[in-house]
Write a protein that binds this DNA or RNA. Sequence first.
RNA 1: GGCGCGGUAGCUCAGGUGGUUAGAGCGUUGGAUUCAUAACCCAAAGGUCGGGGGUUCAACUCCCCCCCGCGCUACCA
Length: 703
Amino acid sequence: MSIEKNVKRYTITSALPYANGPKHIGHLAGAYIPADVYARYLRLKGEDVVFVCGSDEHGTAIPNQAMKEGTTSQAIIDKYHVLIRDCLYNLGISFDIYHRTSEPIHHQTSQEFFLNLYHKGLMTEETSDQYFDEEAKTFLADRYIIGTCPKCGNPNAYGDQCEKCGSSLSPRELINPRSTLSGKPPVLKPTKHWYLPLQDYEKWLGEWILDSHKNDWKTNVYGQCKSWIDAGLQPRAMTRDLDWGIKVPLPDAEGKVLYVWFDAPIGYISATRALFQELSDHKKTFSTPQRNFGAVKAEDWKKYWSDSETKLVHFVGKDNIVFHCIIFPIMLHASGEFIVPENVPANEFMNLEGDKMSTSRGWSIEMHEYLEDFPNKPDVLRYTMLTNLPETKDSEFTWKDFQAKNNNELVAIFGNFVNRALVLTQKYFDNQVPARDALTSLDEKVIADLKEFPSRIAASIEAYRFREATAHLMDLARLGNKYLAETEPWKLAKTDMNRVATILNIAIQISGNLAVLAEPFLPYTAQKLRDMLNLSRLTWQQTGSADLLSNGHSLNEPSLLYEKIEDGVIETQIKKLNDKKNQMELASQPATPLKPEIVFDDFSKIDIRIGTVIAAEKMPKSDKLLKLTVDSGLDKRTILSGIAKHYSPEDILGKQVTFIANLAPRKMMGMESQGMILMAEDKDGKLRLLQPNETVAPGSTVS
RNA sequence: GGCGCGGUAGCUCAGGUGGUUAGAGCGUUGGAUUCAUAACCCAAAGGUCGGGGGUUCAACUCCCCCCCGCGCUACCA
């Protein structure tokens, strides 16, 4: 059972975007929009909240991207930091600071964190043999080593993963490894690294998550954590041999940096620290304070990370659960100086038009693309995402839905109600808020209903049910439309202006409430509506009232809050999406690099033959393996082949196949495979049989 | 295969600890209306709650088995 703690302040974090490229809108669904709603809501309530984020700029993928773009790591992070930051701000994500992990204060914070654990004896040292490029004089990150995959024979498998068969590898498993830096085979050299013994904290995690957060964490998050904890944790290296990152602050650690997943979450702390540093210095290099923090001292950041009366909430996507629920909390807990998160309301993924979003495959809507194509419409995207957040399972974004949400809800319900109320007031009362006369029971009921909305919306937000909260907001506009439909003030205008005055007063009060209550969800709309109503910023506590705007208060000229989106615009986007994907497929897949040269003798050692599949069945307990019996001309042999995802046993039965006949037998899943079937791999990873043009006798050799 | 999360109206999704006729929005159909960006408002049609067992007076809700989707993980010599 979780203990309700007395919350004095909130620290809200959104996952740090990795600055190796643009980010698509799926990220918004997980980490940014829900966090922003939460933060804006708390600020409206007057809570003491900081909302921090920043670019994650370390790790091997940054230098990788630099190589791809033919530039430096620094240039990459500078470019994408600015791009991502500006997109997030333009979408209304109200960070108090958007920092970056390349800043000195973050290096310092991370190093202090590391040293603290080190000096407490909480890190273990281990020396192991790692690949070293003698020419480049550097240890090679897993990704920088290419070799033959021991599992599928792909000659260009990376040291951490074979992209052909998808298996995760360690560099030592590669056959004939070579460095991508020099092309030479690397040599093994001993290197020392520092590990965090995660397994020592299993008991603590069990108590903290499994016992005390069983009821208040989302089931997907809790289940994921339980799965990890039950499986047992392993020591995890917190350092790497790399020249891009934060130096390990120890004397014997030349050429070593902190593991990017060690330093990245510390970025939340550094960002908070930088925020208070800038506030106390009256500088705004990275900070964009969203409220008046008053006079603060640089050390005040500590309250947001150390005080038990602070509620820490991490907003992340499901890919980040393990880091934010297991590894980072262990770091925080082990340090003895920091609080651990109160909740990690991770969302699932948002798919796009029926397929997974992916920047690299071109199946995505990038944030900057949206902002270019739909300038001044950040709220439409926010609304569409909010109504369809993947809170309990993967959800789906479609352009048609985007159009429908805009046209049928934002325009037809929200915008229309406000417009009706304002236009009628302009028409009958010269843009002055009319005074209410005697109330009918309907009026009283509407006023009573209105009063319920703030607490209803608040309850949903506080339970991290943002989709539901958004629906409640729209229901308030519905209440307004219904009220006007039932009272028909345009008819009464001919007979009873006192009645019209009463009705429009109430309609205007509902609009005023919308202006405040919409702020967490639709900040640009809220601003525009406040301007129209000539209303200053109010607090959440003031809402629910039917006296937000006083009698005689002057309104400004009404204008439309939203505009319709025509079919053509949507068709253009769908076409653009498909074009982008097709273009990516052609462009993004460079031919795999050439293998080192061989001589004829090397080739002739391989006995390649044609055989016929005379029996085929699924390998029990395996998703990937097919057990084939092949008539090789010489014998009938068993060959296990990892093609189950591409061919069913019926597909392949009776087919001629090309196989390596003299490969040493190898046991897999307890069964011996006597050879290897050759396959062509298409760009999308599909495997296709390699067959002779016309049928040949089983056992025919290939040369 | 193991583990986790899902599988509810045409579509996108809600449905603490089992209990009257299973909900919302959109879409569809019909009605009403004209203040409003032909929008709003009312109503109806539409679901054997993935399939099969079981527990119970009673299950969408608990248990078991199976099928499908997603994620992690193991096996694609």
